[in-house]
Nucleic acid binder design. Sequence first.
DNA 1: ATTACTGCAAAGGCTTTGCATTGTA
DNA 2: TACAATGCAAAGCCTTTGCAGTAAT
Lengths: 155, 155
Amino acid sequence: MSHEGQASLEALQTQLRQAGLRVTAQRAAVLRVLAHSEEHLSAEQIWEQAKAYDASINLATVYRTLSTLKELGIIDPRSLTADGRRRFYESAAKPRHYHFTCLGCGRVQEFESDLLDRAREQIARQHGFHITTARITFEGLCECCAQSHSGGRTT
Amino acid sequence: MSHEGQASLEALQTQLRQAGLRVTAQRAAVLRVLAHSEEHLSAEQIWEQAKAYDASINLATVYRTLSTLKELGIIDPRSLTADGRRRFYESAAKPRHYHFTCLGCGRVQEFESDLLDRAREQIARQHGFHITTARITFEGLCECCAQSHSGGRTT
DNA sequence: ATTACTGCAAAGGCTTTGCATTGTA
DNA sequence: TACAATGCAAAGCCTTTGCAGTAAT
């Protein structure tokens, strides 16, 4: 029932228990939201969806759960907006990839890049950096939006 | 008197006037701070330093000025911290470069990277993106801090 | 029965904004 | 003299936290 490439709900709950943490209805609700989504959800979006599983779940609890899941290495928070204020969460199990946010349609596209991977390694080597985090995000217009913005539609 | 590669104070003030904006004591103060600094300053740091030129300058004014200067293409705000909450400002006149923040000593190192430049172009080409902003930042331990953390000093 | 976890509400960090006042052009 | 720009204080946005009550093991 779960999407490919994503840890099953039970596996995640087991991981919680093995860490000595309790599997509460709230945590299960957040895990279910994350397990069923391929998207990049904000804490508030996760909250909204989690209410379907636990109607009384509180936003503060969502934040605390997300923090816990990050600690466990289950999810990764990402800064995808220009101001970098809001964070979006995605599965940490995903293979290394990067994000492009279209300012026209708002869609976030994921892609891989060998060149980017190699650049990161080269930079670490050249400067002696021990890189623990690389925050790499692109913004602009996607192919579709660039066309409609530059050309204008013929109607 | 001004640092190399940096627009002179008068040039910047002229740019303000040409945009139909007034050169107030507060704006001059912020410009002077920016003109004399090679660093990445937060709004609050700029505020502190600007007080030397205009003791009564208000933080809100600093923010408004920074916003104006960004609009004019004079400065660029950067997210250099992990949480991305705070912004640091640097001259937009600098040649393209990237940042590495050391979590040990807190220092920010700038560097250039051909590979990163090429990756960015390749990504745009491959996916049809019209990239307007690339936010690329690295974090970890610099060479110096990595050594002292791993080895420990012999004393 | 413990004690980790939650809800609630308040605070915290950074930035923006409304409005009366100041000061540049 | 206009009207742009400022100071002040309040609000806004997202996230974190203190505390008393609740529930998982």
